[in-house]
Design a protein around this nucleic acid. Structure first.
Length: 575
RNA sequence: GCCCCCGUGGCCUAACGGAUAAGGCAGCGGCCUUCUAAGCCGUUGAUUGCAGGUUCGAGUCCUGCCGGGGGCACCA
């Protein structure tokens, strides 16, 4: 066991059980990192009432038992009853050496493996990804990677908007300009201009708008000519998405698309089932479900609109079908919707409906991993309508350009320079969104997203590059450094102890679907490494110290490399 | 009107009910004849929006208020 918190927790529980009886062994050991020692346990205070003793009466004998354990250098009571625990240097060094020898770096496969759907990114056919897609895409991808690393069966699902009202509009427009012209325009990458032209007609020409609405019905009915034109749009977007995801280092492929059209054939049956169960009723001409607990403006219940009064289906229908399909057909036990906060009520209603329908039953869970709203510089909402959307591709170009400027005079070879700038720029961009709690709302700020110093992606990449440089200079392979690791100086001890926290960080990130917990750990680990790097010469050290420092460097590299890959941050060999 | 989320140094953020609220940016002062200065070390700067409450202990939980954002019938 290389997780110090788990190891100490077990020791504390054992001490409590031995001292007061086995029924107290189940108490939460409340071990956590402390500014006063390595770790702190609060069991003396938290169980004082239950045991009917003062915190010190509990803490003293527990501390005495901890002090007898080889892992513990010192356990002492302080303040109102905190048990401050300092680990033995030898224990840390031994666990660290074990971690280095473990291909999984001490991160255990989950005991209960789950099949999980991670629904993220939210791309649309015929629309380019914009800056607002960045966080939901980066965060969702990191969640998927982390869960997969822990051994879960992850089903990535990008809810692809390929079926809405706007397709009637675009297909009508395609019919007017002709199939070949449509094809040519898309081939030259002008999908946005195509969409805007269709939109303009839709907004200004009532007759066109009317044809567009009818075209939607034909699309959903599978009329062949309509489908053929629709397919042209879809294919074009799939190629666009493939390229931009590849450049963003996002693992989504065309096979991971969960298009709205995919659920089309299920919608009627979903409506039937919900009607049969008495959960769907006709209201104002539409088939609606009214999950309890949601009231609207005038005190009336808020509907999920399963079938519109014109017979068409919308977003509510698709989401109901999707959750049924995932729970009853795919057999998943956890669904994570990585979606903007503005959809919070909608998703809660879908979840409630799924519970009522008997699709969502424990132990299966559905959760909304809220993505905060990105606003414009004035705090105003970025809206799809306005042409002020910042394209994600442009943001990526800007990030790479800024990174290139930093290394302009460092790498004469333009190919190498381009590769490094790409990794650094994209890494900075993604880390900017992965390092903060995903539900915080924020103002679109280029300088924030593209920062290259401080707590940033490049800082972590840089630490990894410097480690590689040590080994390159010595002509050694990091994989050949096996230690043993000794916790010589305080910097070495602090680094080794920090690196042992990888497993906990990964598990915390997976449990809460919050990648920033992993990002925070990696920043702390990189900081601990750079302090070590400044204070502890590696190559000029001799004998066992040199072996230990090489091993600690190799371990740091592997932890950073693993963690960055789990976040989807590219790791350049050099910087 | 009802429901949900958020108010932490000048700015951006972290903190699983635990002590003296932790980082980054910006500012100030140091450090490159020694493994990459995208770095390191030091330092200035906060009664965690306001008022109560629960608790041995509250940034964290509860109530009220103030401020900001989001949602509330055929868009997604």
């Amino acid at each position: 066991m290389t997780d110090p918190e788990a190891a100490l927790g077990a020791l504390v529980q054992q001490a409590l059980a031995d001292e007061f009886g086995a029924e107290y062994a189940a108490a939460d050991p409340l071990i956590r990192p402390s500014g006063f020692a390595d770790f702190q346990s609060n069991v003396a205070m938290s169980s004082a009432k239950r045991l009917g003793r003062s915190p010190r009466e509990i803490g003293e004998p527990v501390a005495a038992r901890l002090n007898a354990a080889p892992a513990v250098a010192e356990a002492e009571i302080s303040g109102p009853g905190f048990i401050n625990i300092t680990l033995a240097d030898e224990w840390i060094a031994a666990r660290s050496t074990e971690q280095l020898a473990d291909p999984r770096l001490g991160v255990a496969i989950a005991k209960a493996r789950q099949r999980v759907v991670v629904d993220y990114s939210g791309p649309n056919v015929a629309k380019e990804l914009h800056a607002g897609h960045l966080r939901a895409t980066s965060v969702g991808d990191a969640i998927a990677r982390v869960l997969e690393y822990l051994g879960h069966d992850v089903i990535r699902a990008a809810h692809l908007g390929d079926w809405g009202t706007q397709f009637g509009m675009m297909i009508e427009h395609a019919l007017e300009i002709g199939e070949q012209a449509t094809y040519d325009q898309l081939a030259s990458g002008e999908i946005t201009a195509f969409y805007q032209a269709a939109r303009a007609k839709f907004d200004s020409d009532p007759a066109f708008a009317d044809r567009a609405r009818k075209r939607v019905v034909q699309l959903q009915a599978g009329e062949p000519d309509t489908i053929r034109l629709w397919q042209i749009l879809v294919d074009d977007s799939m190629e666009y998405l493939r390229k931009i995801y590849a450049r963003l280092n996002i693992t989504l492929t065309s096979a991971d698309m969960a298009p709205e059209s995919f659920y089309n054939s299920m919608l009627g049956d979903v409506c039937d089932e919900l009607e049969r169960r008495g959960l769907a009723v006709m209201s104002e001409g539409a088939l609606c479900a009214f999950p309890p607990g949601f009231t609207g403006r005038d005190g009336k219940p808020v509907p999920l609109m399963l079938r519109k009064s014109d017979g068409g289906y919308g977003y509510d229908s698709t989401d109901a079908a999707a959750i049924r399909y995932r729970l009853t057909e795919l057999g998943v036990t956890r669904i994570i919707y990585v979606v903007g906060s503005e959809q919070s009520q909608h998703l809660q209603m879908i979840f409630e409906l799924a519970r009522q329908a008997g699709w969502l039953v424990p132990p299966a869970t559905a959760e909304h991993a809220v993505i905060g709203l990105m606003t414009g510089p004035g705090g105003q909402r970025l809206r799809t309508r306005s042409g002020e959307q910042v394209k994600l591709a442009d943001l990526m170009d800007e990030a790479v350009d800024r990174a290139a400027a930093v290394i302009a005079d460092r790498y004469p070879d333009p190919v190498q320079r381009g590769q490094i700038a790409e990794a650094v720029g994209i890494g900075a961009l993604k880390y900017g969104d992965l390092s903060v709690a995903r539900d915080s709302s924020y103002v679109l700020d280029f300088d924030r997203l593209l920062a290259l110093t401080g707590n940033t992606g490049p800082y972590l990449q840089y630490a990894a590059a410097r480690i590689r440089s040590i080994f390159a200079r010595a002509g050694l392979n990091p994989d050949d450094a096996t230690g043993p690791i000794v916790a010589g100086t305080s910097a070495e001890r602090a680094l080794a102890l920090r690196l042992l926290g990888l497993g906990r960080a990964v598990n915390d990130a997976a449990a809460a679907a919050e990648p920033h917990k992993l990002a925070g750990f990696l920043f702390d680990a990189a900081s601990a490494f750079t302090t070590f790097y400044e204070q502890c010469p590696v190559l000029t050290a001799e004998g066992e110290i040199r072996q230990s420092r090489l091993a600690l460097s190799a371990l740091s590299l592997r932890v950073l490399d693993t963690g960055l890959r789990l976040l989807g941050i590219p790791v350049p060999e050099r910087m």
